[in-house]
Design a protein around this nucleic acid. Structure first.
Length: 778
DNA sequence: GTGACACCTATTTTT
DNA sequence: TAGGTGTCAC
């Protein structure tokens, strides 16, 4: 046995990285600038611990930000030291790790292991119900306001009781909130459910209330590593503290084979955290930057290692990033550098509208692709999800293969939620939220009145809604409804009985068939229901896929996995498509070429951030994160006007643009040029366009961009059309609404997906999806 | 209980 | 714009 890992683990590392891999001590903070190879360092550090037998795999707990990052880390450690050698490590997100612990331990405090995880939508639905019950909306309580406050409290480890202790009950707002919070907590407990924030907070409570349980995990995890430490919130911090606490002698089993300290206890686990306070972008979700800033104070005798050399981007990109972030005061100075060379200049572009901007992005992507950059190495970032609309429209028209990350819309579809609610009901019979959702799907004649009758029976007899359904015959309802209710209850009970053992897809198919769910969709004359039926079938495929990957996986495992997927998790490296995502989702990723769109006041920084403490600084970090994702090519774009809520507003360049040294950016079309270009934009706008030039727009940024309503609001977005069976062949002349006349040079693909390559007389070469492009044959 | 329709309002980021 | 809510007739 040797304590020095073999050379392969240290190969190609710089001295700081090397030290970060080799350091052995109780606590280590690795301050890792963007692109400084921290994943590499982390994986090699873990691999080293295992290789030297300082740790067994089961003694390692590594926390990552997304499931995808976890999978990648597992893979990379496996590649370094052998897959079997690496088995048994816990590498997961905070939430997944806590679910794993809670499923084992929930019975300690009144939950069953089949608890439901309420996602934000579920939480909001419950809060909405409570607000309605209490008529609290008349007092000014909103769902989002209450949800935010509850989440914040839980992230600070404050439950209703402790919150109430500090509350001022003379203030009706305060008193009302406490009442809602109390009912919310009770409802969750009755439903055998945890919300996202509970997963962390309840695990902390569990450890604090049951030291023997805590000791189990403290003994097990001897090496804890946390990535993206700057984005941990207080609850997560507390969890780490609990896990790394030493074990008191009375909780050490007599037959322990572990080294004990003088008093017979066991010292705490070693802790490695990796982070970069410049990339902290989740304060809005409770992330507390102090966790990383005060690490050295929290964990005395800790070592701090700085990684500043960047292996990802060109110097121009890094210079821009450094320049921007240096405007945040109150930060430790850190400058990224590289030996790659300065590289291409950053390209800037100002469009007239979001569509114009999107067209620029599409054109440049096409050019990059022609130069040999694969689509999968290109990403488009934006601040808000709403910005995808214009991008998608243009991308579809240009026949660009793309995929939108996040907005995991599949699971948000009503029919999928319904089908999932069936699964949840079967797994957790205590959950009324899921049951209520499916009670009348497909239509069984169980309306609000019947539901209320069931609910009051349940309340009066202190039983669950599910129990009440079994007793429906006692309620004096009509025979038809009664039959429908007891029939459903019976199906659910029978399927529930198999939930622990049966295959997930079998459970789902049985439910869909026996409840008549799928049949109702197929029999419907609403054409949309056909698509819905297909979606539900897609869900069946998803369960089958899940079972293939997890032969032992239970229904609970499936439900957990679905609840905890992160936006970045559905990134598929083999997809061959351009990736579209929010700046938040982009964290931790990197691309050959990056398009950062909507660099405008009001969007980046976002309007909403202006009123928040630290808002503008956090937005700047977001911009910084976006810039540093790019390896070689960076495009910054904005639009002069942006359609929003059916209105068109004038937008101003973002203040952050002027923080980038001018010589780093080459403007293809600067905000100044954009005001004077003639051409395709409507006259109405031309006439009233405010005259601001590039230079002056920076020196006199208004606090909020002026809102100008124009009459062509609807014109731009109404572009999706159908050319029917229009067929084109090379050589045809066509006319395009925006690009004018051109000649078709090639046609590829078939049917509705055929694409024409067109050389326009003035607008250059474009690819167009024939079916929907605004073109006519000449 | 259901479905159609009109009206109103809320718009950041996410595990 | 779009989604959610409320009202009304059947």
């Amino acid at each position: 046995m040797t304590l020095v890992p073999d050379d392969r683990l240290l190969e190609g590392l710089n001295p700081q990285q090397r030290e970060a891999v080799l350091y052995r001590g109780q606590s280590l903070l690795i301050v890792a600038g963007a692109g400084s190879g921290k994943t590499s360092v982390l994986t090699r550090r873990i691999a080293g611990l295992l290789q030297t037998r300082e740790a067994w795999p089961s003694q390692v707990l590594a926390i990552t930000f997304t499931n995808k990052a976890a999978a990648e880390m597992r893979e990379r450690v496996g590649a370094l030291i052998g897959r079997e050698e690496a088995e048994g490590m816990w590498i997961s997100t905070f939430h997944s790790a806590c679910v794993r612990i809670l499923r084992r331990e929930a019975e300690n405090f009144g939950f069953t292991k089949s608890f439901t995880i309420y996602d934000s939508a579920d939480s909001r639905a419950l809060i909405k119900r409570i607000i309605k019950e209490l008529d609290a909306d008349t007092l000014g309580f909103t769902v989002s306001g209450v949800a935010g406050k509850i989440s914040k409290a839980k992230n600070e480890l404050s439950d209703v009781e402790s919150y109430a202790r500090g509350a001022n009950f003379n203030d009706p707002n305060e008193a009302g909130f406490v009442e809602i919070f109390r009912r919310y907590t009770e409802s969750l407990a009755r439903a055998n459910a945890f919300d996202f924030d509970d997963l962390i907070a309840q695990t902390v409570y569990l450890f604090r209330a049951f030291p023997a349980v805590a000791a189990l995990y403290q003994r097990r995890f001897r090496h804890i590593l946390v990535d993206e430490y700057q984005d941990t919130n207080h609850a997560q911090y507390a969890l780490i503290r609990e896990l790394t606490r030493g074990i008191a002698p009375e909780h050490v089993p007599a037959d322990t084979r572990m080294a004990t300290s003088a008093d017979g206890g066991i010292p705490g686990a070693s802790l490695t955290v990796v982070g970069d306070s410049d990339q902290s972008i989740y304060a809005f979700r409770g992330a507390d930057i102090r966790n990383i800033v005060e690490f050295e104070r929290d964990f005395p005798n800790s070592r701090v290692i700085l990684l500043e050399q960047n292996y990802r981007s060109t110097q121009n990109i890094l210079d821009a990033a450094n320049a921007v972030i240096s405007n945040n005061f109150d930060r430790k100075d850190k400058k990224l550098f590289t030996t790659i060379g300065s590289g291409d200049k950053i390209i800037g572009f100002t469009g007239y509208s979001g569509h114009d901007e999107a067209q620029f992005v599409a054109d440049e992507i096409q050019k990059l692709h022609d130069e040999g950059v694969a689509y999968k190495d290109i990403a488009v970032f934006y601040r808000t999800n709403a910005q995808t609309r214009a991008l998608e429209e243009i991308f579809i028209r240009s026949a660009l293969p793309y995929r939108v990350l996040g907005g995991t819309k599949f699971y948000e579809r009503a029919e999928i939620k319904d089908a999932m609610a069936y699964l949840i009901t079967v797994a957790n019979p205590f959950d009324p939220l899921a049951l209520r959702r499916v009670m009348n799907v497909p239509k069984r004649g169980i309306g609000p009145a019947t539901e209320a009758a069931l609910q009051s029976y349940a309340d009066a007899n202190q039983v669950t809604l599910r129990d009440a359904m079994r007793d429906a015959s006692l309620l004096g309802l009509g025979p038809k409804v009664t039959g429908a209710i007891t029939g459903l209850a019976q199906i659910l009970d029978e399927v529930s009985a198999t939930a622990g053992t049966a295959k997930v897809s079998d459970i789902l198919v049985t439910l869909l068939q026996r409840t008549g769910f799928i049949e109702a969709l197929r029999a419907s004359r609403d054409p949309q229901d056909e698509a819905r039926a297909e979606n539900v079938e897609e869900l069946v495929s998803v369960t089958k896929e899940f079972q293939r990957n997890n032969p032992e996986g239970t229904l609970l495992d499936f439900l957990t996995e679905v609840s905890l997927v992160a936006a970045a998790d559905d990134l598929d490296d083999s997809s061959g498509t351009v990736s579209l995502m929010t700046l938040h989702t982009a964290k931790g990723l990197e691309y050959e070429a990056v398009f950062l769109t909507g660099v405008e006041e009001g969007l980046l920084p976002h309007q909403m951030s202006a009123s928040e403490v630290g808002g503008p600084a956090e937005e700047r970090r977001l911009f910084y994160v976006g810039i540093t994702r790019a390896r070689r090519r960076l495009f910054l774009s904005l639009a002069m006007t942006r359609a929003q809520f059916g209105e068109v507003n004038v937008a101003m360049p973002s203040r952050y643009l002027q923080e980038i040294p001018a010589d780093l950016i080459e403007w293809k079309q600067s905000p100044g040029d954009a005001t004077s270009r003639g051409g395709t934009q409507p006259r109405a706008l031309n006439a009233r366009r405010p005259q601001f030039s590039y230079a002056s727009s920076f020196s006199e940024l208004p606090a909020a961009p002026p809102r100008v309503k124009t009459e062509w609001a609807n014109r731009v977005t109404n572009t999706v059309r159908d050319n029917g069976d229009l067929t084109l062949a090379a050589g045809d002349r066509i006319r395009h609404v925006d690009f004018g006349d051109g000649r078709v040079t090639a046609v590829t693909g078939a049917g509705p997906k055929s694409v024409a390559e067109v050389q326009f007389d003035t607008a250059g070469r474009k690819r167009l999806l024939i079916k929907i492009a605004p073109i006519e044959k000449l």
